[in-house]
Simulated scan of single mutants.
Amino acid sequence: MPATLEVESTLTDRYQTTVPETVRRALRLGKRDKIHYAIRSSGEVVLTRAETIEAQDPVLGAFLDLLARDIATQPQRLQAIDASLVQRLHTLTDGVDVDLDAALSADDE
């Protein structure tokens, strides 16, 4: 299958490179995503987005780690959520549809 688009990047002295924007977009790569390399006997390297068993959001993971450390070090700060707050949250989000698989706009990336 012939390539429909070709791009290049340069290796640094430390053998690092920036993944070109066109490749990042084609593979739907975000910051901290992992890349999978398949090296064929012909020397051809196929680059794909690595699939993780658990799709983890690095920002969410860091936030959850922060919460876990805070709870472990200061458990006295924990408070129950007030029923009126729960009702307000339901009111604010009632009827809001979210497509978690939809691509982000350029402004949101």
Rank of each mutant, 00 (worst) to 15 (best):
P58C: 00
Y37N: 01
E6G: 13
D70K: 14
L100P: 06
T48Y: 07
G95L: 01
F63S: 09
L104V: 07
D13C: 05
P58A: 07
E8M: 10
V98R: 13
A55T: 14
D13I: 04
P2S: 09
Q74C: 06
L78E: 05
L67P: 01
L66W: 08
R77N: 14
L66S: 06
D65N: 10
P20F: 00
A38L: 08
T73D: 15
A102Y: 02
L92Q: 15
T12R: 06
A72W: 01
H36P: 00
T10A: 05
P2Y: 11
E8I: 03
L29C: 02
D99W: 06
A72Q: 05
I35Q: 02
G30Y: 04
D97K: 11
L47H: 10
A26E: 02
G95V: 03
E8C: 11
K31N: 06
E44K: 15
T52M: 08
D13M: 10
T52A: 13
A83T: 10
L27K: 02
V96I: 12
A62N: 15
A26Y: 01
P58K: 10
E54K: 07
H90E: 13
G43D: 10
Q16K: 04
S84A: 03
D82C: 07
P75A: 13
E54I: 10
D101Y: 09
D65M: 03
L78V: 13
P2V: 15
D57C: 15
G61C: 13
E21Q: 12
I53T: 12
R40Y: 13
T91E: 12
Q79F: 08
A68K: 05
V96K: 11
L67K: 08
D108A: 11
T73K: 12
G30S: 04
D107P: 01
E51D: 15
I71D: 09
Y15Q: 08
Q76H: 13
S84M: 01
A62L: 10
I35A: 07
V23R: 00
S9E: 03
D82S: 08
T48K: 13
A80K: 09
L67D: 06
S9H: 01
D99L: 01
E109R: 09
V86P: 01
S9N: 02
G43M: 11
A103G: 00
T4I: 11
A3W: 07
E44F: 10
D70Y: 11
A80L: 09
T10S: 10
S41N: 05
D94N: 09
T73G: 11
R40G: 13
R40V: 04
V96P: 02
V7W: 00
T10E: 08
R24Q: 14
R28H: 14
I71P: 04
R14Q: 09
L78Y: 03
L67V: 14
V98K: 14
L5I: 04
D57T: 11
D57G: 05
S41P: 00
D13V: 02
R24M: 14
Q56R: 13
T4P: 06
L85F: 10
P75H: 13
T12V: 06
E54P: 00
